[in-house]
Every structure is written in structure tokens, then in C-alpha cells.
Computed example of a mutant assay.
Amino acid sequence: MKKVGITGQAGFVGNHLYTTLSLDDTIELIPFERSFFEDSKALEDFVSTCDTIVHLAAMNRHEDANVIYATNIALVDQLIAACEAKNVTPHILFSSSSQEINDNLYGKSKKEGKEKLVAWANTQKARFTSLTIPNVFGPFGKPNYNSVVATFCHKITHGEEPTVINDSEVGLIYINELVALFINVIKGTEKGTALSDFSTELVIAPKHFKKVSEILTLLKSYKKDYMENGIFPTLELPFEKALFNTFRCYVPQDHYPVKFTKHTDPRGSFVEIARTQTSGQFSFSTTVPGITRGNHFHTRKAERFAVISGKALIQLRKIGTNDVIDYYLDGKEPAYVDMPIWYTHNIKNIGDEELITLFWINEPYNPEDADTYFENV
């Protein structure tokens, strides 16, 4: 069992890495809190418990660039001091940036932080790996902070109009792709190139290259087709599936439940569940009163629950949080709720009659790669 700690665990990359590693039975996660950098004993206890430390804690933005530089250097110095105080040599992974070659104080803080850790590793004969990271996007990124994708997604889903200031081509990596590389380094299956006898460097190349205007066009189409008309886009291309899953996480909570249009004539009624530009699986279930189905989450699948008969409570909770979202649906007014990735979810029959629910998911069930993780809401 490898013991792994992540400084910056609550940040964008840190949260995704932590929640993904939590699914791995061979990893024991050592909790980290931001306050540890203000408590030398707590930080020393943390580093002495870890086999591997992923150092993600950093300041990315501040009105005074000197504060960014001073903060990031201080965090590295404190991490090294804690290791030396406890005489421990965990494998340290350092999140560097492609900006380290640029003439700015953020890039300088990353370059000098890396150099300090290389020197520590050489002196202590410890393992150190620097990962140079390109622009990252994915669910739960902070708008106006983590990426242009996060900013565009937030603005578009909240009725604002984004502005393209520089329509250049951007090299991007999706958060799931980045996390997979971090895990490979933690497990020793990804080595990088040597910086010294004890240090290596992995320069991560972008996986996707898109002009800013191309990204904006796709996101606007998601708003028109998906949010306004309930149409799922094509999800066959890796970038478009990643961008769509990112977009969905910014859809306001009160967007759901979305009511269907019910067409009624003497024969009965007809309700269109979903139009889709991609493949997938449609299914239905019947549930007797008082029974709950689900209590699982997905990391890549897009899924829709549609209640067409009976009364239901659909609950969602983002992994790593305690806030439960409740949606009450009644088949007399057919409606649906879509399940974001990384949200555990369930559906319960709260009525006195049989509940009929229709389901759509963007890929057929594969027991060898189910992408289904059980956790109670």
C-alpha cells in the first residue's frame, strides 16, 4: 500500500487527483490541509507519513506578481525544511509549468522551485520528479482563474457573452489525461528524462490544439442544442467529449428538472426523451414503492434519468462533498435530470404506485470497463 499525500489537495488538479486515487485499492491517501503550511509540526507529521508527495500547492494569480513569486518559493522551502526536520525522503512530484521558460515571476517561481527540489534530492539521495504541465481544462475549474475553458463555460451557461481577446491556437490537456500521467509517475510506469542522478523531468505535451474561437463555437452549440433543446452532441471525439463533460458541470443547478413536451390524443400520450448526435444506450426500469436504485457515480459517462410514471426523488452529491441535491419528479409532468460525472446519484420511488424511469447513457454497459463506482449519496 503506497501512502500518497497531495499539497493543494483542495485545488483544481489536486481535487481531481485525490478523488481518482481514492478509487485505487493500492493507494492510501494521506489527508492534507492548507493550514499545514502555517503549522510546522503538522507539515512535518504529514511529510513523515508519506511515501510520495505531490506538491501542487501554489499561487497562480495575484495583482502583485512579487507575492506570487515569494509565496511559491516559500512553499517549496517549507516542504524541504519539513522533510529535513524529520530526516525523510519521500518521492516528491512537483507541478511545474510551461511558463518556467518565460520572463515572468510566476514562471521564475516554478523554475527556481524545481531547482531547489533537485538540489534537495541530490543531497538527500531522494527521488524527485518535475512535471511541466500545459494548459489544463476540466470539470470544476474556477472561471477567470484556472482556464479560458472554465471562464467560457461559466459565462455561456449563465447567460453572459464571452469575449475572444486573442484568437490564438491553444495547446490543452484534459484533467483526466493529466491525472493519468501523475498516477503513472506515482506508480513508476512513467519515468521522464534525467535531470540528475536522483531527479527526472517529464515535459507533458498538450493533447489537443484548438483556436480560442473554435472552443467558443463548440460551447455555444452546447448551450443551444443541449441546454435549450435537450440534444446531446456527438461524443465520439475525445476532445469534444471532454469539453462537453466540462460544460455540463457549469449548468446551473436550477436548470433541472427540465419538463418534457407531452403530446396527448385519444390513443394516449407520446414523449420524446432525448435527441442525440451520438451513440448510446436507452433503457427503462420499474421500481416498487420505497425502493432506491443507483448509489453510484461515473467518471466519463453522460447519463439521463427520465421519470414518466409515478413519483421519484433523485439525489446527487459531488464526490468529496457533503451537500446533497434533491430533485422531486412526478410522472404527471414528465421530466428528466442529467447526472454530471463525479456525482454519486440515486433514484427512489416515493409514491404509492410503480415508478417507471427511462434511462439514456452515451455508451453501452461493458462489465469489463463499467465506469461505475458505488457510493451512497
Rank of each mutant, 00 (worst) to 15 (best):
K3G: 03
V4D: 00
I6W: 05
T7P: 10
F12M: 12
V13N: 12
V13P: 11
G14V: 07
L29R: 09
L29P: 04
I30D: 02
I30T: 02
R34L: 12
R34M: 10
E38R: 13
D39L: 08
D39T: 10
E44P: 08
C50S: 03
C50I: 03
D51R: 14
D51I: 06
H62W: 02
E63P: 02
D64V: 08
N66D: 13
V67W: 00
V67M: 09
A70S: 15
A70C: 04
N72G: 12
A74R: 15
Q78K: 15
A81N: 12
E84M: 13
N87T: 10
T89K: 15
H91M: 02
F94K: 00
F94E: 01
S96L: 08
S96H: 05
S98R: 11
Q99S: 14
D103A: 13
Y106L: 05
K108M: 14
K110M: 07
E112M: 11
E115D: 14
K116A: 04
K116C: 04
V118Y: 05
W120S: 00
R127S: 13
R127A: 12
F128Q: 02
T129I: 06
S130T: 07
T132L: 08
G138Y: 01
F140C: 08
V149C: 09
C153E: 02
K155G: 03
T157I: 02
T163V: 14
I165A: 05
N166V: 03
E169A: 09
G171C: 09
I173K: 11
Y174L: 11
Y174G: 13
E177Y: 09
V179G: 02
A180M: 09
A180T: 06
F182A: 00
T189Y: 10
K191I: 13
G192P: 12
G192T: 05
G192M: 07
T193A: 10
A194W: 08
A194S: 13
S196C: 11
D197A: 15
D197L: 14
F198S: 10
F198E: 06
F198G: 04
E201A: 03
L202T: 05
V203M: 08
I204G: 07
A205H: 11
P206R: 09
S213I: 01
E214V: 01
L216S: 02
Y222Q: 01
M227G: 00
L235D: 00
L237M: 10
P238S: 11
E240S: 15
A242Q: 10
F244H: 02
F247Y: 06
R248K: 15
C249H: 13
P257N: 04
T261E: 14
F270M: 15
E272L: 15
R275C: 03
T278R: 01
V288M: 14
P289C: 08
H296E: 11
H296M: 08
F297Q: 02
F297C: 03
R304P: 07
A306G: 12
A312F: 00
I319M: 15
G320S: 10
I325P: 09
Y328S: 07
L329C: 04
G331A: 04
P334C: 01
Y336V: 01
V337M: 10
D338T: 01
W342C: 04
W342H: 06
Y343T: 01
I350E: 00
G351F: 08
I356A: 03
T357F: 00
F359T: 05
I361D: 03
N362H: 07
N362Y: 00
P364Q: 11
P364F: 03
P367L: 03
E368T: 15
D369M: 05
A370V: 04
D371Q: 04
N376D: 12
